[in-house]
Amino acid sequence: MKTNTNGSFKKWMNKEGLYYVMLFPFISLFVLFTVVPVLSSVILSFTDYDMISNPIFVGLENYARMFANDTILATILKNTLTFAIITGPLSYILSILLAWMINEFSSWARVILTFMFYTPALVGGTAYLIWQIAFSGDSYGYVNSMLLSLGLITDPIQWFKNPEYNMTIIIVIQLWLSMGVSFLANLSGLQNVNEEMYEAGAIDGIKNRWHELWYLTLPSMKSILLFGAVMQIQAVFSVGGIISSLAGYPSVDNSVDTLVSYIGDIGGSRYEMGYAAALSVLLFVMMMVFRLIVGNVLKLLGK
């Protein structure tokens, strides 16, 4: 009898059981370090918590505050969405096109070009601060001094302090920074496209390179494109620290403050962790909406 149970256990281990064994290291740590904290954070969103005394349950008060009692939240949401809706698609499409153009070069040209576009993300840290010098508000900033000497302006422009310009500048900086994860993932995804498929494509009447990209290449790397899109959503909705250090927090008239920097302010400076957690839930819901839209848009590929 005993050998029999052992035998069937072995059989199970070789089939489904081994899958659970392979899943275990990742999922157990994932539950511990991500699922439990996320659930705790959601629970905190129903409390009043100043990080010193114990959280007090307040029901939906934090959520009610968003709609009724928060005068600047509307501006913050408008900024976050404007920024995401412009930067997200632009840098996503740019990351696909660049990867596609670079992919056809031979090895060293490819590595060099990839390196160049990836540099801002690779160098990381405070590399973007170079823009602070360039767009400095006095007459010494590179941009101001150039415009002054060309006679295009008579007084230096306070680039980051002027709501007319600051959003545009920050969008440009974010695009410059954004050739990171999605860009490299697309490059590796292009390596995965089956060469023989192109052969079949020629017979099926593919006429030019754009046709090839739209009907063959992109549909066959659809799953990588979804990955890139999700990473892009995550990136554009998570920009906060960079903006705060360039334009200050709060920026003039809150003109470029995003939800993430607002959450940091509520939680970190005002110790209202419950409200910060509720705002995080709101941010998550917003990102999920975009995730669903993107998933449906990608289904149209190659159609």
Binding site: V36, P37, V38, S40, G267, M273, S280, F284, M288
Partner: peptide, 16 residues
């Protein structure tokens, strides 16, 4: 889980 903002996770993570 990728879409959940990390800021408010820091405290629960520290407890863990």
């Amino acid at each position: 889980a990728l879409l959940y903002n990390g800021y408010t996770l820091a405290i629960p993570q520290y407890f863990i």
